Simulated scan of single mutants.
Amino acid sequence: MQFRLVALITSVLLTGCDSSEVSIVKKMTVPQDQTHTYETALSNRATCETSEWRTFKDNANREAVEYLCVLKNGAELLAAKRAWQIKEIRSEFQNYYQAMDQRIEEAKQHPAFLEKRVVELQEKLAQAQAQEAQADKENGDNDPVRAMRRAAVRNEMGAVASAKFSAERTEQSLLDAKANMEENLASLQREKERFQEDEKNALARIEKSYGGVVKATEVFQWSVKGEEVFPAWSGVKLQKQDGATISLNTNWGLTMRDLLHYRGDDHVRYALDIPGGVVLGQLNAPKPEAAHPIPNPVQQPGSSKETCYQVKLKDFRKGMGEESPVNNEMMNEWRAECGLPAV
């Protein structure tokens, strides 16, 4: 009889541990799975170091309930994530710096390249002029009128006109490159410095989010009005060594659905957004995939190879007319100047 009385008293005390609001929330059916209540969905989780339900007043002074689960290995996983992200950011920006250094070096070498091209094109122009002069001499003796017509056409679209245009265009590019060298190099240096500032800010954001975390707590909150329950917020609260707390939002529906399907470590990684390659306790994370380097042209700093070629073609059309023919020799000269293969 005494044993039954003690058991009855204990049952009454345990039943009275939860506030009415907590009891209301616990017995509510989970929208993501009608076979679960919030109590069955959230209770007895092996991945919680500790867990508790409590009531509080929200910002609108409404009755609210929250469930808190201190995640096992949460701080350690976030430390590994922090190391992974730092290494990834540094690797990515290192690729940027290498690309920028290459572009700076190419900008320095560009005038020398153009000087060489000018000499080559002037030699081709001289050869074309010599060949045309010889042809004029041979044809002029037989038909002077035809020779004059050929000379007129040649001046507009022949090999000499093409060679002359290419040489003059390259000479102008050389003058522009020399005149703009200092500003181009300064612009590239400023761009590199912007990348350095971006890297600094990215590392600071990682440190602010995950540096010095000592505890990670998964939280679900509800607003309660009478017998009605409304999901209010879900997320993770990170407690840091200096006493600061950071709240990270998660999607309520997706997080609850994941919890119902993966109640173990997989859900902890999901809640903390841990990348698949991050290994618990492995602070030196595997090298991430290299970021795509900044596109940089071979011969025309600041523009792509194809754009470089299209600019030359457009300039030719503008000077000679939209219907002016372009022979293969001209096309290949422009493509060579822009670092493209011959056609």
Score class of each variant (00 low, 15 high):
T10D: 02
S11M: 09
D273A: 15
N59V: 11
L78M: 15
G158M: 07
S19E: 12
T47N: 11
R169A: 00
L42I: 04
H267V: 04
S223Q: 14
A152G: 06
E49P: 03
E21N: 15
L13N: 08
Q300D: 10
E197Y: 01
Q241A: 10
N328P: 00
K208H: 10
E289M: 05
N180W: 02
M320S: 11
P275E: 10
P144K: 12
M28D: 04
T170M: 04
N73K: 12
E227C: 02
T40P: 07
W84N: 15
L280F: 06
E21M: 11
E337R: 08
N284G: 04
P301L: 01
P288Y: 06
P231H: 11
P325V: 00
F56E: 10
V30S: 02
M100G: 02
T250G: 06
A152V: 11
S23F: 10
E88C: 08
S20G: 06
C69Q: 04
E123S: 13
K237T: 11
T55H: 07
A232F: 05
T47F: 07
L280T: 09
N73R: 10
K87D: 13
L71T: 14
L283N: 11
M181C: 00
E92Y: 06
K72R: 14
L203I: 05
F56C: 12
A285V: 02
P111T: 07
E228A: 08
K124G: 09
V298L: 10
E228Y: 05
Q109A: 11
W222L: 12
